[in-house]
């Protein structure tokens, strides 16, 4: 176990973290702004992977990469107008249940459309090799995922902290009634954030497709890690989402290396500890 080994593990952890970050940021801001618990977020991720794989099969990887998030956003739009807008005013329990039903329904819809077997999706030609990085050979595609995650994080951090719409979103998360009184169209803001969140979930799915197998239940598998990330990080905050993702990625990866017996329990134990000590998460959006 030399330095190269640890670098490799750290890169693996970082790559997992970035994937989770893409998924959790949408979910956490939707929750922070709309107080809406969207358990079906994982299903949108699975849809992203399926759209990506289908589009890539016809038009090459980059077609899938750019169009799948748009397609998932369209699905999100339909869900928003049909269901989610109506559920806005009901309690968390009803929202959890409706989106739980949605998970079931979307799971079987993907099975009907794409079948039970996994779909293959290849990384693009240019990213298919390995590159030397920090003294180790690492798959270029995984480095691309890390870079993409960091890029999205930087872009979101800039938008949220430096632009007017970012200030409006922060105001909405902090106190939506007050923001509405100051003339911000909070409803429209919700809508924009929801669309961006769905698109990011779709992006995460497309990007994950060449790494994992595209199966109907992939959305169900990623849901729990995503929820852990946003609860550990604190609901509604960008800082929480990135911190939660990094913690999850590193605890999971290094846990599997150092204590394989306890690895899967470790992260749940950590979540339980956070909930007991800081019930609102490490970096909650509201002070």
């Amino acid at each position: 176990m030399d330095l190269g080994f640890w670098t490799l593990q750290a890169l693996n952890a970082l790559q997992l973290s970035m994937l989770l970050f893409l998924l959790s940021i949408g979910l956490t801001v939707i929750f922070g702004l709309m107080h809406f618990v969207n358990l079906a977020h994982g299903s949108l991720y699975a849809l992203g992977a399926y759209f990506g794989a289908s589009l890539a099969a016809t038009g090459g990887y980059w077609t899938g990469f750019f169009l799948a998030p748009v397609a998932v956003m369209a699905v999100g739009l339909v869900l928003y107008t049909l269901l989610i807008r109506r559920m806005r005013k009901s309690g968390p329990m009803a929202q959890v249940l409706v989106t739980f039903g949605l998970i079931f329904a979307l799971l079987d819809l993907t099975r009907i459309v794409w079948g039970d077997l996994g779909l293959p999706m290849n990384a693009p030609e240019i990213l298919s090799g390995r590159v030397a990085f920090l003294g180790v050979e690492y798959p270029a595609y995984r480095l691309f995922v890390v870079a993409l995650g960091l890029g999205v994080f930087a872009a979101l951090a800039y938008v949220l902290s430096r632009t007017q719409i970012g200030a409006m979103i922060r105001a909405g998360v902090d106190n939506d009634a007050m923001a509405a009184c100051l003339g911000i169209n909070v409803e429209r803001l919700f809508f924009i954030v929801f669309c961006v969140g769905c698109a990011l979930a779709g992006l995460a799915g497309t990007v994950a497709a060449p790494l994992l197998s595209v199966t109907p239940d992939m959305g169900l598998h990623i849901l729990i890690p995503t929820l852990i990330v946003i609860v550990v990080g604190g609901l509604g905050s960008l800082k929480g989402a990135i911190a939660g993702s990094l913690i999850y990625g590193f605890v999971q990866t290094f846990g599997a290396v150092l204590a394989p017996q306890l690895a899967s329990m470790l992260i749940y134990g950590f979540l339980a500890a956070v909930l007991v000590i800081k019930p609102a998460g490490l970096f909650p959006a509201k002070g």
């Binding site: 959890v96 729990i224 852990i228 017996q261 306890l262 329990m265 749940y268 909930l275 019930p279």
Partner: peptide, 24 residues
């Protein structure tokens, strides 16, 4: 001590903890 969605998540965490332990 937790309420609402946090209670749901906390119980989920304990449940999954037991699941992973039994699995491993």
């Amino acid at each position: 001590r937790s309420h609402g969605i946090y209670f749901i998540m906390a119980t989920l965490a304990f449940g999954q903890m037991a699941y992973s332990y039994v699995f491993e």
